[in-house]
């Protein structure tokens, strides 16, 4: 993956989360689930946003916290789903 692609994905997802959750900032490696930033009510909204924004479908095989635990992980997941191999 190129750094530019990953950065663009992270910025897009970050903007969505900051517009939805009452937090002031979100770093690339912040733990989205462990910290409580993403709770069970927000998880499907975030997934739907990612599907819509990046033209992918999250399926049963993708249900792994490692795919969504941070902005870095989410960017890597989106790029993998779109056929980009990890750097």
């Amino acid at each position: 993956m190129s750094p530019e692609q990953a950065s663009g994905i992270k910025d897009t997802v970050r903007a969505f989360i900051l517009g939805s959750i009452a937090i002031a900032k979100l770093d690339d490696d912040d733990d989205l689930f462990g910290s409580g930033i993403v709770n069970s009510l927000f998880a499907v909204q975030l997934m739907t946003f990612i599907e819509k924004a990046f033209g992918i479908e999250v399926g049963m095989d993708d249900l792994d916290m490692e795919n969504f635990k941070s902005l870095n992980a989410t960017a890597a997941f989106v790029l993998r789903k779109n056929g980009h191999s990890a750097a």
């Binding site: 998880a43 499907v44 049963m60 249900l63 916290m65």
Partner: peptide
């Protein structure tokens, strides 16, 4: 249905929607 760990965060919400 789905993977254990995701039933309340992902499976139930789709049905509840």
């Amino acid at each position: 249905i789905g993977k254990p760990g995701f039933a309340l965060s992902h499976v139930a919400p789709v049905g509840l929607q």
